[in-house]
C-alpha cells in the first residue's frame, strides 16, 4: 500500500463570482521512501493541492470531493482534532516563506522546544537534546539555537525550518517551494541537504516547485500540473527524457539545458484559463500548438503511454512527431 494515496482530490475556492476550481480532480501516490516533484507554472494549483492534503487552507477554500489516504486513513474526512495529532508526527510541512515561519521575538530554540515538548511530550532536557541533534542533522551550529531568527541568513532559516519539520520523525514531508527564495548557491546546499536527509532517514517527500531542474535533481517521480489538473506523471528521468504531453514539452523548452549548449529558450504563449469557468475540453488546448477540434470539446483522461508514465492528451499516438515539432521555435509562435 502506498504511504500517501491522493484520489480525485478537488479543492475549490469560494469567490464572489462562483467557485474557483483551483484543484480539480488530482490523483497520485507517494510510496514509502520515495519523492515526488509537483511542477507547474504559478497558479496551476500546486500549493493548493498540498494545502488540501494537510488541510491547512484559507477560510474560503473547501474540498468538495476526493480522498487523501495516509497509511489508509482518509485525511479529508478526519476531524480537526485527529488531524492535529497526525500533523508533525506523520506528516509535516516545510513552508515556502521560512523567513516568516519563526516568531521574531523568540529564540530559534524556543520554536523547537515548543513543538518537541507540546507535540512530542518530551521533557525540557530531552527536547534540548533533540533540538541539538536536529540542528546537527541539517548542518547548523548548535550554538545558534540561542539566536533570534533575524540573526540567521535566509539559507540558515530554511535549514532551521527543515529541521523543525523533521522534529518528530514524520513519515512524509511536504516541501512547498523550499528553495525558491534562496540564491542558487544556497539552493544547491539546501537541496543536497534535503536529498541526504531523505536517504538517511527514509522519509517520503513531496516537493512543490516551478523549477524543473530542482525536481530533476531531487525527486524520483514527477507530476506536471496545469490549470488544476495533473497532465503528466511518471518517473522523473523518463518524463524529462520523453515528455508525452505538449505542456511538458513546452515546459522543458523553457528551461536551459547544460548539455545542449546555447540555445534560445522557447516560451509558451498566453496564460492559463480562468478556473471559475474552466474550458470543457483539454485545459491546455487554447495554448497548445497541436490542438485539434476534439481537444476543445472532449476532456482527455490520463492514459498510460509508456511504462509507468501517464499523460492526458488526445494525440498520445503521435507523440514522436509532436516531440520533434516541439523543438522548433516556430511551432510555439502564433498559437493563440
Amino acid at each position: 500500500m502506498a504511504l500517501l494515496d491522493v484520489r480525485n482530490l478537488k479543492v475549490h475556492y469560494r469567490t464572489l463570482r462562483g467557485a474557483n476550481r483551483a484543484v480539480d480532480g488530482v490523483s497520485f501516490t507517494v510510496e514509502k521512501g520515495r519523492s515526488l516533484g509537483l511542477v507547474g507554472e504559478s497558479g496551476c494549483g500546486k500549493s493548493t493541492t498540498v494545502n488540501g492534503i494537510v488541510r491547512v487552507m484559507p477560510k474560503n477554500a473547501f474540498i468538495p470531493e476526493g480522498e487523501v489516504l495516509l497509511n489508509g486513513t482518509d485525511l479529508v474526512s478526519l476531524p480537526e482534532s485527529a488531524l492535529r495529532s497526525i500533523r508533525w508526527r506523520e506528516l509535516s510541512l516545510i513552508p515556502q516563506a521560512a523567513m516568516d515561519s519563526l516568531n521574531p521575538v523568540y529564540l530559534v530554540q524556543d520554536a523547537f522546544l515548543e513543538v518537541l515538548r507540546l507535540k512530542g511530550g518530551m521533557s525540557k532536557a530531552e527536547a534540548l537534546d533533540r533540538a541539538q541533534h536536529l540542528f546537527q542533522l541539517v548542518g547548523l551550529d548548535i550554538r545558534r539555537l540561542k539566536n533570534y531568527p533575524h540573526e540567521f541568513s535566509g539559507g540558515m532559516k530554511q535549514r532551521a525550518a527543515i529541521a523543525l519539520a523533521l522534529a518528530l520523525n514524520p513519515k512524509l514531508v511536504i516541501a512547498d517551494e523550499p528553495v525558491t527564495a534562496l540564491d542558487v548557491i544556497v539552493q544547491r546546499q539546501v537541496l543536497n541537504e534535503i536529498r541526504r536527509l531523505r536517504e538517511q532517514l527514509h522519509i517520503s517527500l513531496i516537493m512543490i516547485t516551478h523549477d524543473i531542474s530542482v525536481v530533476a535533481e531531487t525527486c524520483d517521480d514527477i507530476a506536471v500540473m496545469y490549470a488544476g489538473k495533473i497532465v503528466e506523471r511518471g518517473r522523473t528521468a523518463a518524463v524529462l527524457q520523453n515528455p508525452l504531453h505538449p505542456y511538458t514539452m513546452g515546459l522543458k523548452n523553457a528551461f536551459p539545458d547544460i548539455r545542449r549548449g546555447r540555445r534560445t529558450l522557447i516560451s509558451i504563449e498566453g496564460a492559463p484559463p480562468s478556473l471559475l469557468e474552466p474550458p470543457a475540453g483539454c485545459r491546455f488546448a487554447e495554448r497548445c500548438p497541436f490542438a485539434l477540434d476534439v481537444c476543445s470539446d472532449v476532456e482527455p483522461t490520463l492514459e498510460e503511454a509508456a511504462a509507468g508514465q501517464v499523460a492526458a492528451c488526445h494525440r498520445l499516438d503521435e507523440v514522436d512527431e509532436l516531440q520533434t515539432r516541439a523543438q522548433e521555435v516556430e511551432t510555439w509562435q502564433n498559437v493563440i
Partner: peptide, 21 residues
C-alpha cells in the same frame, strides 16, 4: 505571518496565539 498560522493549525488556543505568539 506564517508562525501564527503554524500555531493555529497545530492546535494552539486563541488565547495562546493572542498572548504568546
Amino acid at each position: 505571518r506564517a508562525f501564527v498560522e503554524a500555531g493555529e493549525v497545530s492546535g494552539a488556543s486563541h488565547l495562546r496565539v493572542l498572548f504568546v505568539y
